[in-house]
């Protein structure tokens, strides 16, 4: 291909956008609306997952040891805990430290005067934090089966609820994202098809004059890509601008839940949302126009 033909094709693709202004506007609006919805849902799901993950990280299992277990054995036990899957962190709490914290909190700075000995002696423990809260059952089961272990404290309800909500969110979000994408692809390719169908005559004229398939197709495909690109950039910009306002509004409105509502920064969301939106928009524009033009090329 000559350079002049290459630039001609580029120019025609850009011109097509303006020549068919209403069609371009309809296509861009459809893509933008679909991807905006997709982006909104994506942001919500990402934040819910983040909140759940934060909640999961706060869920811990506390393990206490029998009095006759030596300090060396307790220390060695930590490495055995680390071998279990799903363990995110293990924190050792010395019984003196526990008493110092508990005593000063509930009895004031002079707490030690009434208690010459540490009433919590022997309550040294490991607090185990999990990466995956669904692993709690198996960890607790294992801990309880160890001869050194006196008691295991955990919240079965919290872990089960979090696991259940997590699975529900995962399934629902996958289903909704798939449906949203399918609807977007259907709407967008329909718009592209209608737009190109009205130009079937133009394509047939080009073919009668002796234009190759590539020569006919290239400007339309480029136009499709541009429509897809613009249609995906608009919702990204909107979401980028709106995100902080919405987060601020929710945080102000539900200040009581501020410790729970741990929102992700927009950059974190965009790390995934931006490539997905651009690929979907440009991909639909590209493949939609390619497939539609091909139907009219058999002249």
């Amino acid at each position: 291909m000559k350079i002049s033909t290459f630039f001609y094709t580029l120019w025609q693709g850009v011109r097509n956008l303006f020549r068919n202004g209403w069609y371009s506007l309809a296509s861009i609006s459809t893509i933008a609306a679909c991807l905006f919805l997709f982006g909104l849902f994506f942001s919500v799901v990402f934040n819910i997952r983040n909140i759940l993950m934060t909640a999961e990280e706060a869920v811990s299992v506390t393990v206490f040891f029998n009095e006759d277990v030596s300090d060396e054995r307790v220390a060695a036990f930590e490495s055995e805990i680390w071998k279990r899957s799903g363990v995110g962190d293990v924190v050792f709490h010395d019984d003196d430290e526990i008493w110092a914290e508990f005593g000063s909190k509930y009895y004031g700075p002079d707490y030690a005067t009434g208690f010459p000995e540490n009433p919590l002696e022997g309550d040294h423990n490991y607090e185990i934090f999990l990466n995956d809260v669904s692993m709690q059952d198996s960890l607790v089961h294992w801990l309880e089966s160890q001869s050194e272990v006196r008691k295991v404290n955990y919240s079965e309800v919290t872990a089960d609820t979090l696991t259940g909500v997590n699975s529900l969110i995962a399934y629902v979000s996958i289903a909704i994202i798939v449906i949203l994408l399918a609807v977007s692809i259907f709407l967008i390719s329909n718009t592209v098809r209608v737009g190109i169908s009205v130009r079937a005559e133009e394509i047939s004229i080009m073919k009668y004059v002796g234009a190759t398939d590539f020569f006919v197709r290239a400007p339309f495909v480029l136009e499709g890509i541009l429509i897809g690109l613009i249609g995906s950039v608009i919702p990204l910009l909107l979401i980028h601008e709106l995100y902080d306002y919405v987060i601020k509004y929710v945080t102000d409105r539900f200040a009581i839940l501020s410790s729970l509502l741990n929102f992700l920064p927009i950059d974190e969301i965009f790390r995934y949302l931006m490539p997905v939106s651009l690929i979907v928009g440009v991909g639909i524009g590209f493949f939609g126009s390619l497939a539609t033009v091909r139907k009219h090329l058999r002249v």
Binding site: I205, G210, A211
Partner: peptide, 18 residues
Amino acid sequence: IPKFRRSLGVVFQDFRLL
């Protein structure tokens, strides 16, 4: 086909202009 058609000139009743 494109190369073949370039050896022909075609005129239609409805002009078929872009």
